[in-house]
């Protein structure tokens, strides 16, 4: 099938799976902010009262990530082979750190996701405190706030969110271009918009471990 193997077909699949993942990042961010309203435990319990839905969601996300990573690696290897990169002097006019390092920011994010799942979903890391709150719900707030009070863990999250910023600051304008939703007027707008949206997502995500670390969230 053309879409699975051709250079533009794979690009479209990278774009669509990327959009799904951005959608997830957005929903997850909104869910996380319940922590600022003291509603994290309620939110978590609500989510887990719908197991089939949670599993469908997880499956879709997992396949999107798998496709995104497989093509990302494949395409990067092909691109390295197509460019001997042997200029003695090469000046970048438009490409930048974010666009050139998608593979690395992406793979670091994949590692982070594994760590994050091992920690807060599977409770495998030693820092995780599992317990119930006053009304017998799983105490997600206590778990998260205990872990983030550890500066080392908070720093891992800060670093990962910087990777997310870099990845999306190229990824957002890039998926729009790949879908063909672009013209001379929108190109610069999407370029700046992509950076602004990515920075916003990064800051909201970072604000949670940061607030816990400085003791503003108890």
């Amino acid at each position: 099938m053309r879409i699975l193997t051709s250079t533009v077909g794979r690009k479209i699949l990278m774009s669509i799976t990327g959009q799904l993942l951005i959608l997830f990042v957005l929903i997850h961010m909104i869910g996380n902010t319940t922590i600022f309203f003291g509603a994290l435990n309620a939110y978590a319990e609500h989510l887990h009262s719908l197991p089939p839905l949670v599993w469908i969601f997880r499956l879709v996300m997992l396949s999107a990530i798998a496709v995104h990573i497989c093509y990302g690696v494949q395409v990067t290897l092909e691109n390295k082979a197509a460019n001997p990169g042997a200029y003695a002097v090469k000046k970048q006019l438009k490409a930048n750190f974010a666009s050139e390092n998608m593979i690395w920011t992406g793979l670091l994010l994949a590692l982070f996701i594994l760590y994050h799942l091992a920690q807060f979903t599977m409770h495998l890391t030693p820092d995780v405190v599992v317990g119930l709150d006053a009304i017998n719900r799983p105490d997600v707030f206590k778990m998260v706030s205990t872990s983030f009070a550890n500066a080392g863990i908070a720093v891992v999250y800060f670093f990962a969110m910087i990777m997310l910023f870099l990845h999306l600051s190229h990824g957002i304008p890039s998926f729009l271009q790949t879908m063909g939703w672009n013209n001379d007027k929108t190109i610069p707008v999407f370029g700046t918009g992509g950076k602004v949206v990515s920075a916003f997502l990064m800051l909201v995500y970072i604000s949670i471990p940061a607030a816990i670390l400085v003791g503003a969230l108890k």
Partner: peptide, 30 residues
């Protein structure tokens, strides 16, 4: 190689061909 939307091409093109045409190609391909 595969296009990954660096837009380096448009900046180097002596005729200023716009990457909007790449967006058009993507639409035509779809």
């Amino acid at each position: 190689g595969n296009c990954s939307n660096h837009y380096e091409c448009q900046a180097a093109c002596p005729k200023g061909i716009s990457v909007k045409f790449i967006a058009r190609l993507n639409r035509e391909y779809q």
